[in-house]
Computed example of a mutant assay.
Amino acid sequence: MSEVKTPPVRAQHIPDKAAFHIGGVGQVPGSFRIGEPDDDGERYFWYCCPCGCGSIAPLTVGEGFKPADGPSWTWNGSFDAPELTPSVHHRGHWHGWLRNGEWVSC
C-alpha cells in the first residue's frame, strides 16, 4: 500500500482501553488513547492510522517533553486538541502531523 494523503482528520480521544482496541470504536481513523505515565513520565499514545486502514500503533510520548530513548514525540497534554512533535510516519500508510486536534497530511 502506498502512503495516502487525506483531508484533515479530527482526532477523537477514546479513554477506555477495551473500547479503543480492535473491534471497538478505536478503529475510527484518527482516534487515540493515552496510557498512564511510567516512572519517567513517558506514556504510550495509541492511535488509529488516519488513512482509514484500521491499523492501530503506539508512539512513545512525553507530556511537554520528548523522551530521550528511541523514536519519541512531544505531546502537548491536550485530549481535546492534541498535538505531537515531530511528524508521525505510519510507514506505507500515512505521513503527517497531529496539530490542534487534527491529523494533517504532509
Rank of each mutant, 00 (worst) to 15 (best):
S2T: 09
E3V: 07
V4P: 00
V4R: 15
V4L: 14
V4Q: 15
K5P: 00
P7R: 14
P8M: 11
R10P: 00
R10C: 01
A11W: 05
Q12K: 11
Q12M: 04
Q12D: 09
Q12F: 04
I14D: 03
I14K: 03
P15E: 06
K17M: 04
A18L: 10
A19G: 05
F20N: 12
H21M: 09
H21S: 07
H21N: 13
I22L: 10
I22D: 13
G24R: 09
G24W: 06
G26R: 06
G26F: 01
Q27C: 09
Q27F: 00
V28T: 15
V28G: 08
P29S: 10
G30T: 07
S31Y: 06
S31L: 06
R33Q: 14
I34F: 01
I34P: 05
G35V: 00
G35A: 15
E36L: 14
E36M: 10
E36W: 03
P37N: 09
D38Q: 04
D39G: 03
D39V: 08
D39P: 02
D40S: 13
G41H: 11
G41L: 08
E42C: 12
R43G: 05
R43E: 09
Y44W: 07
Y44P: 00
W46C: 08
W46A: 13
W46I: 09
Y47F: 15
C49K: 02
C49M: 02
C51V: 05
C51D: 15
G52Q: 04
G52Y: 02
C53I: 02
C53A: 06
G54L: 05
S55R: 05
A57I: 00
A57C: 04
L59G: 03
T60N: 01
T60V: 15
G62Y: 07
E63L: 03
G64E: 09
F65L: 05
F65Y: 10
F65A: 07
P67E: 01
A68P: 00
D69C: 03
G70M: 08
P71I: 10
S72N: 04
W73K: 10
W73D: 08
W75H: 08
G77A: 12
G77L: 12
F79R: 08
D80M: 05
D80A: 14
A81L: 08
E83N: 03
E83V: 01
P86Q: 10
P86Y: 07
S87C: 03
H89R: 14
H89W: 01
H90S: 15
H90C: 13
R91S: 14
H93A: 11
W94M: 03
W94H: 07
H95L: 13
H95R: 12
G96Y: 07
G96Q: 09
W97A: 07
R99E: 15
R99W: 00
R99A: 12
N100F: 01
N100Q: 14
N100K: 13
G101Q: 13
G101S: 07
E102G: 00
E102L: 11
W103K: 11
W103H: 04
V104K: 15
S105Y: 04
C106H: 12
C106Y: 06
C106A: 15
C106V: 12
